[in-house]
């Protein structure tokens, strides 16, 4: 019997899809009873969304003005206190920047080890995870630990379906919250485009786009096929695209149905971010670019000529 506590990720308005991925991961553990903890301020609707995820037995809410922003230093002692309330066996969070920031702090407060980037469950406390930028997959065993913390590699799991109807219980905690970290601002490019981490189609641009101005070609093409926009590290480093679009080992790990890479050479650090994509299309003028080794469909040529033609032909139906 596994008792699994999952911390919900949200932006104060909506439940992040990463939570449903964590639930799906937990559901793969035999005999799992899943509790989702929602910490925030005015989080009724978010808690309801969590309660509807299939496989969730219970939702705990901790509604507090101090939780208005997801500060790891504030959330960690509360999550640790929740983990101590009952005989939990696992505490999971998503392997997003939210979970990567928070979960190790929780693990240290609980004095338990953390398993990062869980990509598969082999037994209740045996997991597979990538190391060396995904060049090696390690299988690890923490069966001797009564409680472990884990972050879930969201691209490795399907989204838990809706259809659940878990009870929502408000929990009050007697925990001293540190005031030594203060939220100042969040600057987000924001757009009406699909979210990069959950989109079924993604168009990414690399260094070959050449400038921020020319990177607009990527946005334009993505919009024409209803895709999210991504970027290689080289494109972000060069200032062509904002950091939140970076795909790869140190950016976002994604699993769209269709990934179209424009002018991306395909360094291992980039490929590790897209290896769960169902179909990879590469367009690059360098026939020797490593991305052609992994692409399902490749086209060698000048992307500035190819992309407008591709857009026109797709629009023509």
């Amino acid at each position: 019997m596994s008792q699994i506590l999952i911390v919900a990720e949200h932006d104060g308005r909506q439940l992040n899809p990463s939570t449903a991925k964590c639930v799906a991961c937990a559901a793969g553990i035999s005999g799992a009873a899943v509790t989702v903890a929602v910490l925030g301020q005015n989080i009724g609707a978010i808690a309801q969304a969590a309660a509807q995820l299939a496989g969730v037995a219970r939702v705990w809410t901790v509604d507090d003005a101090a939780n208005a922003q997801p500060l790891a230093t504030v959330l960690a002692p509360q999550l640790a206190a929740l983990a101590r309330k009952e005989a939990f066996t696992h505490v999971f969070g998503p392997s997003t920047t939210f979970g990567k920031d928070l979960m190790p702090r929780v693990a240290a407060l609980l004095d338990v080890p953390q398993v990062s980037d869980i990509m598969a469950v082999e037994a209740p406390k045996v997991f597979r995870r990538p190391i060396y930028a995904g060049n090696v997959i390690i299988t690890i065993d923490v069966s001797e630990e009564p409680l472990v913390v884990g972050t879930v590699r969201t691209a490795s799991f399907d989204t838990a379906a809706n259809g659940g109807s878990a009870a929502v219980e408000a929990v009050s905690l007697d925990v001293v919250l540190p005031a030594y970290v203060r939220f100042v601002a969040l600057v987000s490019a924001g757009s009406d485009r699909p979210d990069l981490q959950t989109a079924r189609r993604v168009v990414s641009g690399g260094r070959a786009l050449g400038s921020e101005e020319q990177f607009k070609l990527v946005y334009d093409f993505a919009d024409s096929i209803g895709a999210a926009v991504g970027a290689s590290r080289a494109a972000v480093d060069s200032g062509y695209a904002p950091n939140e679009l970076q795909v790869g080992q140190t950016g976002k790990i994604i699993a769209p149905d269709l990934y179209i890479a424009l002018g991306i050479s395909g360094a291992i650090q980039h490929m590790t971010g897209i290896k769960d994509a169902k179909t990879i299309v590469a367009i690059n003028k360098d026939a020797d670019a490593p991305i052609f080794e992994s692409a399902d469909l490749g086209l060698v040529g000048d992307l500035f000529a190819i992309v407008p033609e591709l857009k026109a032909r797709l629009a023509a139906g």
Binding site: D11, F98, A185, L186, S188, A189, Q197, P242, N243, E244
Partner: peptide
């Protein structure tokens, strides 16, 4: 550098 963009903390 966070998934949503750039967050500043004091």
């Amino acid at each position: 550098e966070v998934d949503a963009g750039l967050e500043t903390l004091e």
